[in-house]
């Protein structure tokens, strides 16, 4: 360009223009790669190892033996998972509990989201804040709150017995019902928010057009509102379903010893049995099941945030 030697600042600026982009992408990319993606590969690796009484408590997968790599892949962990009905039933239980809770959350959350979306200006903001507020308060404390309500000596039993409706306390805590209540309660905001945002964005004149063309209100809801809010339903359901499958705290605190869920199994394998390879294979097995919903979630997440589509 010119013969004059660029100053240090100019050089820096030029360098920034050329490489700044890479720098901005690089930092978060590297961090997430190292602390999010690589760990999964390690989990995968260790799931093929065998447990050892050592530090760390698993065998090495690769061993340098005589100018070559000896790979000791051990499928035993996975075979063990398949052979033991405990794991299989924990899986099926988790999926069933997560699915049922998701449906209940949807049934409670949809009318709420719809009501909020139809509310006027300041009321709407207030209602929205009321939905978000519990989401900010401690998750653990919200689960804990239900212990006092559902317990054998809890408030529900005290109230029902005080009113002489029942004579023997109901067993609610330490049942699956308590787990449903816990999941629905803690994940309800995650369902309401995406539903609200699709319902709020929906053009009100579409519903008016349907009414105008002779459609009765409930039918207009079924043929117009419901199909158009499908993205919100899907996003909300995935936001509830995926974490609920791996939920640990809720079944641990509200469920009984028989409420087996896979997150709880993983926790016990790791902390109680100290069997890291089995815990890893449980994690990988859970991940394999969740990979499709997670990728689908990412897909719709990308679609809603990409204004080009």
């Amino acid at each position: 360009m010119s013969d004059i030697k660029p100053t240090l600042k100019q050089r820096f600026d030029r360098w920034m223009i050329r490489h700044g982009r890479v720098l901005v992408i690089g930092l978060p990319y590297l961090w997430l790669f190292l602390f999010f993606l690589v760990p999964f590969l390690i989990v995968l690796k260790i799931s093929f190892a065998t447990a050892q009484y050592a530090q760390p408590p698993y065998s090495a997968l690769f061993q340098w033996v005589d100018e070559g790599v000896n790979i000791a892949i051990n499928f035993g962990n996975y075979l063990f998972l398949l052979s033991d009905s405990l794991y299989i039933s924990a899986y099926l239980n988790s999926i069933r509990i997560a699915a049922i809770s998701t449906v209940i959350t949807l049934l409670i959350g949809y009318p709420m989201a719809y009501g909020i979306a139809r509310a006027k200006g300041s009321t709407r903001n207030l209602l929205l804040m009321l939905v978000i507020l519990p989401f900010w308060t401690s998750f653990l404390i919200r689960v804990y709150a239900w212990i006092g309500i559902l317990d054998r000596e809890g408030l529900i039993n005290a109230a029902l017995m005080g009113l002489h409706i029942i004579s023997e306390p109901l067993i609610i805590r330490q049942t699956e019902v308590a787990v449903y209540i816990g999941i629905v309660y803690t994940y309800l905001p995650f369902m309401i928010l995406p539903l609200y945002s699709t319902l709020e964005k929906m053009d009100g004149s579409l519903l008016e057009a349907a009414l105008d063309l002779g459609c009765k209100p409930w039918k207009a809801f079924a043929t117009i509102t419901l199909p158009l809010s499908l993205p919100g339903i899907l996003a909300g359901s995935l936001l509830v379903f995926i974490p609920a499958v791996g939920e640990f705290v809720i079944p641990e605190l509200l469920g009984g010893p028989n409420t087996l869920m896979i997150g709880r199994t993983l926790w016990n394998e790791f902390f109680s049995n100290r069997d890291w390879p089995i815990a890893s294979s449980v994690a990988i097995a859970m991940l394999i099941f969740l990979v499709v919903p997670i990728m689908y979630f990412q897909h719709i997440q990308g679609k809603t945030e990409d204004p080009g589509k």
């Binding site: 053009d203 004149s205 008016e208 057009a209 009414l211 105008d212 117009i224 158009l228």
Partner: peptide, 20 residues
Amino acid sequence: VPPYERPTNMMFQSYALFPH
């Protein structure tokens, strides 16, 4: 008389075509 029973039909400013 609710909108769905009126002998009128409307062409909306936004057209309000059902996108799906």
